[in-house]
Design a protein around this nucleic acid. Structure first.
Lengths: 155, 155
DNA sequence: TCCTCAAGTCAACATAGTTGACATGAGCGG
DNA sequence: CCGCTCATGTCAACTATGTTGACTTGAGGA
């Protein structure tokens, strides 16, 4: 891992707006960065990065997930999963074992250490979200969720 | 550019929620993807990708921006900017010229073709946002904006 | 004229992804 | 028990996007 603190994107740029929705585009960009910045810093200190966190996050919420299912959820190729996954296994943040009945698949689980890392990283992100939601109250948070669902599903 | 249609991340995963804010974390992830998916498809067809769009977007909103200022806004290194920027110049989507007075800096501008590409790509993103905002009305859109600002500035 | 500073360029590297090809090994049908 | 299927694992080659570090070029100001 190259850097420990991105610093990178800095503050939101103040660009002229050509359209009324330009501010929304920029907010989506800087919002994503704002949410992940501290978590990425924390992960970098652990020698990990975003893909590792994504794996830990999914396995935390689907204990005993098989590798094939993990690939589907993450939407990446088996080969792309390979390196970060092996690192997590070597570091003993994850364990894999054969299923008792279905011996073909390997089932993944977090170790205690893995759970700790996943929680700390996700906590950084949740902290940012909580602070933001606190500003707008329950109805505002509900509106945010409705907008984001519409965007995510784009329907 | 490797693929023309990502398909990638598929639909939102239905993972168990360990915390009440987990849904928000996932919505941020899939929201970003949902907003950029069509634009990235369009860009890929033009042999371009996200960094090229970011450059075009900024230059569109700050005509005659110098390269150093562009680096600051994008938050990447001079060397990282170099390749995508040169591609845009070669393709004549951007022009660069020396400033009349301050001859040290090069000033960037979109060509007509560059303006077209920037508009089409951004239009894809704006379309998604507009559809989402239409669902929740003006107060909902305002709440979304307030939440995103709080996240982006993380203060 | 010399120094500074913006810009450009080259090398080496890390990360994150892709395809393609192939090995291994378990479970199952015949 | 043989052989097929299928999940997993691994190797190689590639693309893209980023990083540092070291250097050149060329314009302008003191």
């Amino acid at each position: 891992m190259p850097k420990t603190s991105q610093a990178a994107g800095l503050h939101r740029a103040s660009l002229d707006k050509l359209h009324d929705l330009d501010a929304a585009l920029e907010l989506m960009y800087y919002g994503w960065r704002g949410m992940t910045l501290e978590a990425d810093d924390y992960l970098a200190k652990q020698g990990l990065s975003r893909p590792h966190h994504r794996i830990l996050y999914v396995v935390a919420r689907r204990p005993d997930i098989a590798i094939g299912a993990l690939i589907d959820v993450l939407g990446i190729s088996k080969q792309a999963l390979n390196r970060p996954l092996n690192l997590l296994l070597e570091r003993k943040l994850l364990t894999s074992k054969r299923a008792p009945e279905q011996h073909r698949s390997k089932l993944l689980r977090l170790t205690e250490a893995g759970r700790r890392v996943e929680q700390k990283a996700s906590d950084h992100e949740r902290k940012v979200m909580r602070k933001a939601f606190d500003r707008v109250g329950v109805p505002g948070a509900a509106a945010w969720t409705a907008v984001m669902k519409a965007i995510a599903d784009n329907n």
